[in-house]
């Protein structure tokens, strides 16, 4: 059994940022990541909204932070068991690691909605239907192409796939998809100026700083079209393109159009690790997201002493929000550890 001051579960932006801030405060931090690679969902990102910052810059900054002398990083170390042992927490992993520490930070993050559950949208059935994550990967390698390997003439983005959907049990808004669709459509236009981009939405929620400006920019500078209506059926055309159907609710008329790519803006759900560990420890809240004791005043603390939360294991958050939350968590843990040594 190895001792540490803090075990941080999850090597994504939240976990790394918190670990780094704790390490700077001279705490011995163990950082466990279930995958071969760190960065979590940041791994696949191309650019970040709203300022189009290159995600690789964020990745190298995060990587640099993990190199801090007080941090020991373990990869391929999926956590199997978190349990309380007197005043300590014991964290065991699938590859046989076993840690004991006075504090644990859960930063196990989110997973994206499995779009195959919305069969009528054709994901997993028609090759031209892809997720926002897959589209981001296309952008990253600079190769936006249709199933046939051709340049798309028209791309549609559909918001709220797996969010605000009572049929799949997710009543909540994932918050990041609207602005992400704006970002993706602009990036698509940057790489393929000839392409037509359409965003289909139920409501457009541009609540963050500079979001509204970006939305405006997408209209003014990039000719992105916005259609208020939810696509409810997708069918293949004879030439292997996709016909999407929605109601253009503002003109009160049904609308159909042929597109080459349909990008589903998939929502955020609690990751399997978040759900499992939350269940073990007893901090599961709604939709399997973890629950802090007070949203307003103690959002990183849980009902268990020494068990803290950071990032999207709590709810859908943007990258800046996640990082800020991680720093706040580090501060809480620092105070907690200091209170123990007094």
């Amino acid at each position: 059994m190895n001792k540490a001051d803090v075990v941080v579960i999850g090597g994504g932006p939240a976990g790394i940022e918190a670990a780094y801030n704790l390490a700077r405060d001279n705490h011995k931090v163990v950082l466990v990541e279930k995958e071969e690679e760190i960065f979590g969902h940041m791994q696949t990102a191309y650019t970040l909204f709203p300022n189009f910052q290159d995600a690789s810059e964020i990745r190298s900054s995060l990587l640099q932070k993990t190199k801090h002398g007080n941090i020991t990083l373990y990869n391929n170390a999926e956590v199997t068991q978190v349990s309380r042992e007197n005043d300590f927490w014991r964290v065991q992993t699938i590859n046989g690691l076993d840690f004991i520490a006075p504090a644990v930070l859960l930063a196990s993050g989110f997973k994206t909605f499995d779009a195959r559950y919305k069969e009528e949208l054709g994901y997993g059935i028609y090759k031209g239907v892809i997720t926002s994550v897959e589209f981001e990967e296309m952008l990253k390698v600079g190769k936006i192409q249709t199933a046939n390997g051709e340049k798309p003439r028209r791309i549609a983005f559909l918001n709220c796939v797996g969010s605000r959907d009572e049929k799949v049990g997710n009543h909540y808004c994932s918050r990041v998809c609207c602005i992400n669709a704006v970002k993706l459509s602009i990036e698509a236009k940057k790489q393929l100026p000839e392409v037509e981009a359409y965003c289909f939405y139920m409501d457009i929620r541009m609540s963050g700083q500079f979001y509204e400006e970006l939305y405006r920019k997408s209209q003014e500078d990039f000719d992105v079209n916005y259609i208020r209506g939810r696509i409810s059926e997708v069918a293949p055309t004879f030439d292997n393109r996709l016909q999407v159907k929605c109601e253009d609710t503002l003109s009160q008329t049904p609308l159909k159009m042929t597109v080459d790519l349909l990008v589903l803006m998939i929502g955020i759900e609690a990751s399997e690790g978040t759900a499992r560990i939350g269940e073990q420890v007893g901090v599961n809240g709604e939709y399997n997201f973890s629950k802090s004791i007070s949203l307003h005043t103690a959002d990183n603390k849980t009902k268990h002493r020494g068990f803290f939360l950071a990032g999207t294991c709590k709810r859908p958050l943007t990258v800046p929000e996640t990082m800020a939350d991680a720093r706040a968590a580090a501060l809480e843990i620092d105070l907690y550890l200091k209170s123990l040594s007094q």
Partner: peptide, 23 residues
């Protein structure tokens, strides 16, 4: 109902007429 129009888009009668349930 948040008037997204998904119902109208998928409507079987819509293939034949201008029926618009949402409206």
């Amino acid at each position: 109902c948040l008037m997204c129009g998904a119902c109208t888009a998928t409507c079987t009668a819509r293939n034949h007429t201008d029926f618009n349930f949402r409206k």
